[in-house]
């Protein structure tokens, strides 16, 4: 069945289906191979018909709205402006890349959106919440439910199995264990780690660890996924696979993706690139 799909001349590089998409079809059609094959063909045809352009969510609502956001740090007697009047909007379902040189403020901007930091001036509205006015408890809940973080160094807990690592956001959300387990199973399949759930992080490769971190970030079905240099520690093959995963997540779940990256090739794959320099958008 899988071989049939891959070999089918309907498939082209543009509309190539991912393994997980094929498996999903199989599952949906209860292993009825005939129906599944027909559905695959229909889906592939649809994809082929779509313009060969990056998917755009321009019609989606604004989920991130920054208005003249400034962030100043005091280091000794000096005041450093990490952000100096940033205004931007990101819509639901967009894949946005934040680029710029070191110290340009891109990570600071990401942290503002994620509620990890508060602006010195300006307004940060995310999913309708004014983050500047939110207290610590509500911000924590906001980060847990609305945001998913992916870090450059994965930050998995070394003494917890991958399964338990993935459960951690659900623990803070007080989700029942049975529900968490089901979701983890699904997510693990989606990121291709279903056979690694019982392993410790040190037993995984860099790419696998980052996929685990992504699955962890997706457990509570966040609206926005924020990734800070997610491929910074990976080779090109794994980097590519991670970006592919982001694209599929955006496509399948409608999640808004915002990544910070130095890599131009990765930035090119985003719907939109926002460049920063010296704390301002250029």
């Amino acid at each position: 069945m899988l071989i049939s799909c891959y070999d089918n001349d309907y498939m082209s590089d543009d509309s190539r289906l991912f393994d997980h998409e094929i498996k999903e079809f199989i599952r949906l059609f209860d292993n009825d191979s005939l129906r599944a094959v027909r559905a695959v063909h229909a889906y592939a045809h649809t994809k082929r018909q779509q313009p060969a352009q990056k998917a755009s969510a321009s019609a989606g609502p604004v989920v991130v709205d920054l208005q003249d956001v400034k962030k100043t740090y005091k280091i000794g007697r000096e005041r450093i402006a990490a952000l100096d009047g940033v205004s931007l909007q990101i819509r639901q379902g967009e894949f946005v890349a934040l680029t710029g040189t070191s110290g340009s403020g891109k990570s600071t901007l990401l942290q503002m959106i994620g509620g990890l930091d508060k602006p010195s001036e300006g307004i940060v509205m995310v999913d309708g919440f004014d983050l500047k006015k939110m207290r610590d408890g509500k911000l924590s809940k906001f980060r847990n439910q609305t945001i998913g973080f992916v870090f450059q160094f994965f930050y998995l807990q070394p003494f917890l199995r991958i399964r338990t690592n993935l459960e951690v956001p659900g623990m803070f959300a007080r989700t029942k264990r049975s529900v968490r387990r089901n979701d983890i199973q699904r997510l693990a399949q989606a990121v291709g780690l279903d056979d690694r759930l019982g392993h410790l992080p040190r037993e995984l490769s860099g790419g696998q660890m980052q996929r685990a971190a992504i699955a962890r970030a997706l457990l509570n079905q966040p609206k926005i996924l924020l990734a800070d240099e997610p491929t910074g520690n990976l080779d090109s093959v794994n980097s590519d696979a991670i970006i592919n995963l982001f694209e599929s997540i955006r496509r399948d779940f409608g999640t808004t993706i915002v990544i910070v990256t130095h890599d131009a090739a990765i930035a090119a794959r985003a719907d939109r690139e926002i460049r920063l320099k010296d704390g301002v958008v250029i």
Binding site: R143, Q145, Y155, Q157, F172
Partner: peptide, 16 residues
């Protein structure tokens, strides 16, 4: 510290 920071980033409250 880092573990606490990560927990806070993914939604842990101070009481957690």
């Amino acid at each position: 510290r880092r573990e606490t920071a990560v927990f806070r980033a993914i939604g842990a409250q101070r009481n957690d």
